[in-house]
Amino acid sequence: MVGRQIVLRFKRPNLQPSAFLPSTLKKMIELKNIEKYYANKGIKHYVLRHVTTTIKQGEFVSIMGPSGAGKSTLLNILGMLEEPTYGTYEFFGEDVTTLNERKRIELYRNHIGFVFQAYHLIDEMTVYENIEAPLLYKKVGSSERASRIANLLDRFNIVAKKDLFPNQLSGGQQQLVGIARALAAQPSVILADEPTGNLQSTQAEEIMQLFKKLNQEDGITIIQVTHSEKNAEYGNRILHIADGVVKEDVLVR
């Protein structure tokens, strides 16, 4: 398990893999004055207040903060799983604050990949089928599908596991499949909610290395929520959130 080589074999020619020059990059996500609260018996419980930030293409952002700070809510809003109460959210210059299902699904199919703490692979599908599922929804042709999956399996060294079911894999392997699935549709951004939260430290390290490589070599934008300072170090920007407010926005290194 330890010391697995992860070789990245393909690159996206249209994106410049230079995370070091964020100012030259295109704006991807722009949040303006995002607020989120739940009203209960007339009392508003704020989860997020006045969150305004911009994330550019090619960044690797970690959202950090104590439990209940609003990290996951922010990620959900970024992933359009929740709508903010106030404020605007622009994705590639388009206002996506409120979207109908069809448009949102269109973004999921082409631009956003999700990675979950509990992997959330579909138990009834094999590794291969799990990776294939988003491609089916995206209506990718069968030969193209086969080659992309073969590529991913190859890259992540899980060719031998392709016919196994999720419960036959270790946690790290499952998360690998989860990431492969998120990458299959060739998204522009990966949203990861504590991707290593359920993993042992060696496996966690591997996953984080993988994210870093994806970011640096493939230019994929990554936004992760994490508890761990160490994991956050893999990225190049950290948003510290507490009580729903962005307290700090720092560049790493």
Binding site: G79, L81, E101, R102, I105, E106, Y108, R109, I112, F114, F116, H120, L121, I122, D123, E124, A133, P134, Y137, K138, R181, A185
Partner: peptide, 16 residues
């Protein structure tokens, strides 16, 4: 429910 959620964020339409 988990499966439904995952399928939806992978780009599955409700009708699908």
């Amino acid at each position: 429910s988990k499966e439904v959620g995952v399928r939806k964020v992978m780009g599955g339409l409700r009708s699908q």
